[in-house]
Amino acid sequence: MAVENFGKDIGADGLLAAASVLERPAEEFVNDSMIEELWAIKAFEHAEIYFNLLSSVDPKILRLTKHDDQLYKHFRETFPDLNVATVTEDQLKSAEAKDVWRSFCEIYKESVEDYNYATLIRLNAAQEYSEANSMIVPRVQFLAIELARSREGHNDMIRSNFKPKKLQTRS
């Protein structure tokens, strides 16, 4: 199923009901394909909105959380050599990387809203979201990498190369 078609069969009422279900603790769910699809819908909608922001404003002035400065500083202290222009699945999800990232993310459990939500990240900062250029990561990992991309100039060309898109309605 193409990401663009997620939610079309559910409708607005179904999506609103799903949103309330997704607020429940993750421990209450087993691997349910409907729940996984709802998480994917939410992650895709976030990606659409975020990319439209990058296409509309100077990324250097974009604030993602009230903890941006602390998050960026901690990220660069923990991952000083990570090239955020292009990231790989191995850099973010290998066994070694998961250990470091898990410790990094847990620090923000209480301070960053939805710190562990599934969020799509672009592997190559110069390109838009696509199946080949996206991966799901915890929200704090997305925030840390995107803050670095914006502050270090890797998101600067987005406004020149892409225009904001009309958001798809999910009714």
Rank of each mutant, 00 (worst) to 15 (best):
H67K: 13
Y108C: 06
R102F: 05
Q91Y: 00
E110V: 02
A85Q: 08
F75I: 05
H67E: 12
L71A: 04
A95Y: 05
L82S: 04
K109M: 05
C105Y: 02
H67I: 01
P80H: 10
F104P: 00
R102T: 14
T78K: 11
D81C: 01
L71Q: 04
F75R: 02
H74L: 11
D69H: 06
Y72N: 01
D68Q: 09
L64G: 03
F75S: 02
Y72C: 01
N83T: 04
K93W: 09
D69C: 00
T78S: 14
L82N: 05
K98G: 00
K109S: 12
V100M: 12
A97P: 03
D90K: 14
D90C: 08
K73P: 00
D81R: 13
E110P: 00
L64N: 03
E110D: 15
T78I: 08
R76A: 07
E106F: 12
E89K: 13
L82H: 02
S103L: 13
K73G: 01
I107L: 12
K98Q: 14
V84D: 01
V87T: 10
K93Q: 15
D81S: 14
V84E: 02
A85K: 10
D99S: 14
T78M: 05
E77N: 14
Y72A: 02
A85C: 01
C105H: 01
T78R: 09
E96L: 12
S111E: 14
D81I: 06
L82A: 04
Q91H: 06
T86N: 10
A85V: 04
H74I: 09
C105M: 11
E96K: 14
D68A: 08
Q91N: 13
D69E: 15
Q91R: 10
K73F: 06
Y72W: 03
Y108H: 08
S111C: 10
T65D: 03
E77T: 11
D99C: 03
L92N: 02
P80I: 09
L71H: 02
K98L: 13
A95H: 12
K98T: 14
Q91C: 07
Y108N: 05
E77L: 12
T88C: 04
